[in-house]
Nucleic acid binder design. Structure first.
Lengths: 342, 342
DNA sequence: TTGTAAGCGTTATCAA
DNA sequence: TTGATAACGCTTACAA
């Protein structure tokens, strides 16, 4: 298309003035600046990406590495990718996708070829081979999620421990003495980084608060209704009066349906609270109190950190935890003795 | 990292020889070539992306545009993105993600700035604003899916009409006279490009073969078990002896469970055939005959076309249909009169 | 406030 | 079979 010298000519200025006017890196008198902008728009000028990279030593591209394993929960994952792309674009960056085997090999490649200014890491596993790569490459890397060994890394994530404690405290403060958690499919506790953190915080804090507590997974490799109902039945039989849910929307739907089938009204006969869900809980059949995992929050923060890392002083390694937020919807109340409802 | 002149120096050759040895665009004597390759590997040399784009006027990047609407079925979509990225990488291309509002605006931007060599279009809607953009930009654009107006475009897709006819023929040839189709959620027939094609081919061809036929959606905006069971019940009540399924894995699971609950054995009491499913049907509780929609096939073809379009003679507009394949699993057999089983 | 010009690291043309 | 070297289109000191 149009090149910078055509814009310069048409605006009657030098090439460098066009560059400065458009990048804002040097003051330009208001009227020449407007003249330049008008011409640029009229000609549909867009700086040549390759030339810009070469001369500016900035690519304006972030690489996004996501293995996309078979057990990745697609809707959740898609929300993170989307949130990252939107946040990056707002700062003028495009997203280059590194999936599959390229999730690791691509990191080295884009770093070595200067194809990206920084790397954002998604779908972080407890033992993640990308940790070692991040330490060895020359461009900044931001993890969205926390691997077991986060030494020397920059990580961003919801404070799952705080979120979980907040959930336990909420039901404990409401007077519940016996609680239960229905979690993710079992595989998530092996391959993903945060479900184990939620589970252990739950158990530790319930113990600390002196609550009787149980935990059940919602399936083996994916949510299955039979397992969920079994876990729910066991919890209720054990006398649980408050339920913490940590899983996908479909698991919530199954639980709510089963509670309804048992004639238990949420927020009256039984308290239910959703922890670290990343879907829109307003879409559930029954509104639930929620301490959500908001992809936009984590991803925006990660992008900000990446942008900062490209500034004059480089980022120091740290785990950035995002404070949990409690959203009430009336699904948690004081317990009713099971005896009374039976 | 290492630059080309360092490689040249270390290998004792000129810069241009290094470039040619590594790109293979000019014959280089076997031993100098190997010397160069060894040095390059040792130094971890990777050509600078910006310089390569600028000098070569090829970016080695494909843009992938995907709006990611709220009603996009995430797992299916993820399979297409993954397949595209893998196919592109095999040809030496990286994928730049254009989502959300950038799905359209980004197309213009990457074309104008020469950030990508071609655009691949995913999640094609019947009336898709990217069609007009594709016609107006300077770089080749390949649609994976077919919009209503495909004039002048290059499109790739499974031949859904042929797949559907194949399905109808299969059950008709087996002797079934009353058949039913359980399809996608209703929204898919408004917003997506191929479900309407499957539905109308089904109805037209069933009519042509003189079959009694019915059609039911599997929900409103997403699959819901109640709607599926209702559609199934109506089909069976109407005397259908063969079922064509066109939807996601969860819909299949609901149907199979309901058939089992009714004591109907698939492949004996009732025939079931899955049309244009993109998940792995081997994971279903009961194996089903399938005419699959294979993301790898469409995406590989699209990438090939994009690569071709960058060659000397440019691509001519065409709709490339992929032939359907029938995978038998014993779920289709001759009909048993309903009267006998009742 | 603006202009001049030196790179940035490749690719590809032209010679040898 | 190989080497010089002129683009490629921009950014950014350095001057004015």
């Amino acid at each position: 298309m149009a090149k910078i010298h055509e814009v310069a000519e048409a605006a009657g200025v030098s090439i460098s003035t066009v560059s400065y006017a458009l990048s804002g890196k040097r003051p330009v008198s208001p009227d020449t600046r407007r003249r330049i902008e008008d011409v640029a728009r009229a000609l549909g000028y867009e700086p040549n990406a390759g030339a810009r990279m070469l001369a500016g030593s900035r690519t304006h591209i972030f690489a996004l590495t996501e293995p996309l394993r078979a057990d990745t929960h697609a809707p959740t994952h898609m929300a993170f990718v989307l949130a990252t792309a939107v946040a990056a674009r707002r700062q003028g960056y495009d997203i280059l996708l590194l999936t599959d085997e390229q999730a690791s090999a691509g990191m080295r490649r884009v770093a070595a070829s200067d194809l990206a200014d920084a790397v954002l890491v998604l779908d972080v596993a407890p033992e993640d081979e990308r940790v070692a790569i991040a330490r060895s490459i020359a461009i900044p890397t931001i993890f969205i999620g926390i691997p077991n060994d986060s030494e020397g890394l920059v990580c961003v994530d919801l404070d799952f421990e705080a979120a979980t404690r907040m959930a336990v405290d909420r039901v404990a403060d409401a007077g519940h003495r016996r609680i239960a958690m229905i979690g993710q499919p079992a595989v998530a506790y092996r391959r993903s980084n945060f479900p184990p953190r939620v589970r252990s915080s739950y158990e530790a804090h319930a113990r600390a608060r002196g609550l009787a507590h149980s935990f059940a997974v919602s399936g083996e490799t994916q949510m299955d209704a039979v397992t969920v109902r079994a876990g729910l039945a066991a919890s209720i039989d054990a006398g649980a009066t408050a339920l913490l849910l940590h899983g996908a929307d479909d698991m919530h739907v199954v639980v709510l349906a089963e509670l309804a089938a048992r004639g238990l009204e949420v927020g009256r006969d039984i308290s239910v609270l959703s922890v670290a869900a990343s879907f829109d809980s307003a879409l559930l059949p029954t509104p639930l109190d929620t301490i959500p995992l908001i992809p936009q929050a984590s991803c925006e923060r990660a992008v900000e950190l990446a942008v900062q890392a490209l500034g004059p002083n480089r980022l120091r390694p740290a785990v950035h935890l995002i404070d949990p937020v409690y959203i009430a919807a009336g699904s948690v109340s004081a317990p009713v003795a099971i005896a009374e409802t039976a």
